[in-house]
Design a protein around this nucleic acid. Structure first.
Lengths: 407, 407
DNA sequence: TTGAAAGCGCTAACAC
DNA sequence: GTGTTAGCGCTTTCAA
C-alpha cells in the first residue's frame, strides 16, 4: 500500500505536502493496512496516528471527551451549562480536562448547528461622520453586554451598502444596524432583508415607510428650537448656513433639509418671512463653514442696520466652527456682532472661541436604542412590530449666542 | 408511511397542497429512526417538523445541485471558480440555477471546512480616541479590498482586551489588529497568541519586545520637532503642557512620556535647561487644556520678562484647543503673546482661532500598514519575521506659532 | 446520567 | 468532466 492509494479526507489534504507524512506512513504502514481491512476495530488507532501526523494543535470537544473518558455529548452539556443532565463528579472531570487542554469551543461550529452566529452587522456610511463614534459606542455597549459581536463595514454609497449587506448575510449575521446616508434612496434591499426575516434597524435615514425599525433624530424640531432660541433672545434677522442644498438626493442630506425647514417654521410662527433672510450654503464641512462665515460677514457689511442679520443658525457643528473663524478673520466678534447657534454637540463645542451654543442630539442613546431594539427582535422568536423612535435635542447654552438683545 | 396518511391539524391542512412538503418528508425518511420517531412522537414534534419544512427558505448548495441536475461537488467547483473542472454548459446551468434560487453560499460553513474565516479582529481601547477613526479607516480600506471582514471590539483595559481576544479566537478570526493602550502592560496574552501561530499586529503600544509586529509613531521625534520648530522661531523659554505624568503605568501614556522626552532632548541640544521651564499637566483632555491654558497665563504674568515662556509645546491636540481658549479667556493673544504648537492633526486644527500649527501623525497610514502587514502574514503560509515599523510626523505650519521672534 | 449518531452547509480528494 | 463521500466541531434527540 502506497501513500498515493490512501484516501485522505479534506482536513488531511495537505498531509502529502508534509515530508513528515511519508516517513510516518512508512513506519506506520502496517497499522494503516490493518485499519483498511478492519477499520471498525481500529478507528481510534487510526485517529491517533493521524493526530500525531497532523500535530493537531487545536483541542476539540472530542479531545476533552477523550481525556475525561466521557462522550462528546456529555462534554457538550457541561460546556453549555445544561445542568441537571450531568452528575457533579462528571462535570468536574470534564471541566478539569477542558482546563488542562486549554479547550476553547469553536463558536463557528456551534453557529453552524444552531444557525445563529450571535453577531450583528454594523454598516456605516462614513467613518468620519461625527455621528459614527457615539453611535458605535452606544451600539457596542449594549451588544457587548448581550453577548453579540459586531461585524463592521463602511459603505459610502448605495452599491457598497447593498454589497456589504450581501456579504454579511453570507457571513450569517443575525441582524443589522445600518447607520448610513441620510438620504431618500431606494430601499429595495432593506425590504428584501425584511422579507428574509432578518431583523435590522436603521438609524437616521429617511425611509418613507414605517415598516422598518427606525431610530430618528428630530431634525425639524432641532431646527425650530435653534431658531426659537435666537428669536427668544430678541433677534429677528436670522441668517442660516445650510448643508448642500442640491436637488440631487445623492448630495442633499436629510438633516440639511429638515433643519432648514425647522428654521422656516420657527420664523413663520413669528410672522417673519424667511425669504428676507440670508441663506448661505456651507457644504457641511469645516472649510465650507469658513467660507460661509466670510460670506456672512460680507453680507452683514452690505446690509443696512435694519435688515442685517444679527444672528445665524448654522446647520452643522463642523461648519459652525468654520463660521466662527470666518467671522473672526473678517473682524467680527461673536456674539457681540452676530449670535451663532448650531446643532450637534461635538466634544470640542465648549472649547471654541467663543464656546458654541448647540442643540445636542442624543446619538449615543440612538446607538444604544438601536441595539436594544435589534436585540429584542433577535431574542423574540416572532417578528416584532416595527419600531419608530424619534429622539429630540437638548439645548446647551454656552457663549456664542450671548445675552438678550436690547430692542 | 406516506405523507397522505398523516393527520394534520386544522391550521396545517393545506400543507398537503404544498409539493415541497412531500419532498422534505421523503428526504427525511431516509433515516429509519426519523420515521420511527415521527410516528411515535408525531404530535409533539409536529411543530418542529413543520418548522423545518416551512423554514427551508435558505437555499443550500444541495438545492442548487438538485435544480441543475448535477452533484454538489460540481456546484462547489463553479461557485469557487475552479475553472477547468467543469464544462461550460454545465457551468451555465449551475449559475442559472443558483441565480434562480437566489443562492447565497454560507460563508461560515465554508470557514468550517477551510478553517479560515477571512475575518480579522480589530480591538480598540477607546472609541473616543482621536486615533481611532483614521486608523479604522486605514484598516478598513485595505482589509476590504483584500476580502477580509472586521470584527470590532472596544476594550478599555487589559482585562477587557484579553477577554476580547479570547472571544474572537473562539470566533476563529484569522488574525488581529490591536490598537490599544499606549502603555507598558503585561503582554503574556499577546505572546500566547504568537505561540498559537495567530498573526496579529499592534499599533502604537510600548511592548518592550521586537518579537511582535508593531506599527509605531515616532513620538520622541515629534516632540523634538515641535520643540525645534519653536526654537528655530527664536523662542528660548518654551513651556510644555503634558498629558498625565503619573507614575502609574495604567494612567501614564507612552505618548506623554515620549513627547515630553523629545522636548527635553531638543532643549538640551541647544543647551537649554529643561528644569527652568514651565511644565503643566494638561491631562490630555480639552478641559485639562483649558485649565492648563489659564495656568500658563498666570505663570507668564508671574514671571519676569526674561524667564516668561514665549512659547508652549502642547502634547496633544485636544488639549491644545483648550489651551487656546484658556489663554484667550485670560486676555492673552496667540501667537502674539505665546506661540502654540501641538502634535496630532485633527480635522479641526485649521479652524481654531488661531489655526493650530501641528505635527501631523500619519495614523491613517498606520492603519493601512497594519492591515497590510497582517494580510501579508495571513497569506503567507510560513510565519513571517516580525515587522517593526515607525512612522514619523509632518510639520503643518498654520497660525499659532506666528513668525520669527525678534531677539 | 450517559452515549451514539445525525446533521448544520460546505470543500476537495478520489473514483469513475 | 462529474459524482460520491468524509469530515470541519459542534448540538441535540433519542436510546440505553
Amino acid at each position: 500500500m502506497s501513500a498515493a492509494s490512501l484516501f485522505l479526507s479534506p482536513p488531511f489534504n495537505d498531509l502529502r505536502q508534509n515530508p513528515f507524512f511519508i516517513d510516518v506512513l512508512i513506519e506506520k504502514r502496517k497499522h494503516v493496512t490493518v485499519v483498511k481491512r478492519f477499520a471498525k476495530y481500529f478507528n481510534s488507532y487510526l485517529e491517533t496516528i493521524l493526530d500525531t501526523v497532523m500535530r493537531k494543535q487545536v483541542t476539540t470537544i472530542r479531545d476533552v471527551a477523550k481525556r475525561a473518558g466521557v462522550s462528546v455529548s456529555t462534554v457538550s452539556h457541561v460546556i453549555n451549562g445544561h445542568d441537571g443532565h450531568v452528575s457533579a463528579p462528571t462535570r468536574e472531570l470534564i471541566l478539569a480536562a477542558a482546563r488542562d487542554l486549554n479547550y476553547r469551543p469553536n463558536a463557528i461550529a456551534r453557529s453552524m448547528v444552531k444557525r445563529k452566529t450571535a453577531t450583528v452587522g454594523l454598516i456605516i456610511t462614513e467613518l468620519q461622520n461625527a455621528l459614527f463614534i457615539p453611535v458605535t459606542e452606544g451600539v457596542e455597549s449594549v451588544l457587548q453586554t448581550e453577548g453579540y459581536h459586531i461585524l463592521l463595514a463602511s459603505a459610502g454609497d448605495l452599491a457598497h451598502e447593498i454589497n456589504a449587506i450581501e456579504t454579511m448575510r453570507a457571513q450569517q449575521v443575525d441582524g443589522f444596524i445600518i447607520m448610513s446616508l441620510s438620504l431618500r434612496l431606494p430601499i429595495d434591499h432593506l425590504l428584501h432583508l425584511r422579507e428574509a426575516g432578518i431583523p435590522f434597524v436603521v438609524i437616521n435615514r429617511d425611509l418613507g415607510t414605517d415598516e422598518i425599525n427606525q431610530i430618528q433624530l428630530d431634525e425639524i424640531g432641532a431646527g425650530r428650537m435653534a431658531t426659537e432660541h435666537l428669536l427668544n433672545l430678541g433677534h429677528s434677522n436670522i441668517a442660516i448656513i445650510t448643508g448642500p442644498l442640491s436637488d440631487d438626493p445623492l448630495i442633499r442630506r436629510r438633516s440639511t433639509v429638515e433643519r432648514y425647514q425647522g428654521w422656516r417654521e420657527a420664523l413663520a410662527e413669528r410672522g417673519i418671512s424667511d425669504s428676507d433672510q440670508c441663506v448661505i450654503d456651507g457644504g457641511y464641512t469645516f472649510e465650507g463653514g469658513l467660507q460661509a462665515g466670510s460670506a456672512l460677514a460680507a453680507q452683514i457689511k452690505a446690509s443696512d442696520r435694519k435688515t442685517a442679520p444679527t444672528a445665524c443658525f448654522v446647520c452643522g457643528d463642523m461648519m459652525a466652527m468654520g463660521v466662527l473663524k470666518g467671522l473672526h478673520d473678517a473682524g467680527f466678534e461673536v456674539p457681540r456682532d452676530v449670535a451663532i447657534i448650531t446643532i450637534g454637540d461635538p466634544p470640542f463645542a465648549p472649547y471654541t472661541i467663543p464656546a458654541l451654543t448647540t442643540l445636542a442630539l442624543p446619538i449615543f442613546q440612538a446607538g444604544q436604542i438601536a441595539a436594544r431594539v435589534l436585540v429584542d427582535s433577535l431574542k423574540a422568536d416572532k417578528s416584532l412590530a416595527p419600531q419608530q423612535i424619534t429622539l429630540g435635542p437638548t439645548l446647551r447654552i454656552r457663549e456664542s449666542c450671548g445675552a438678550q438683545v436690547r430692542s
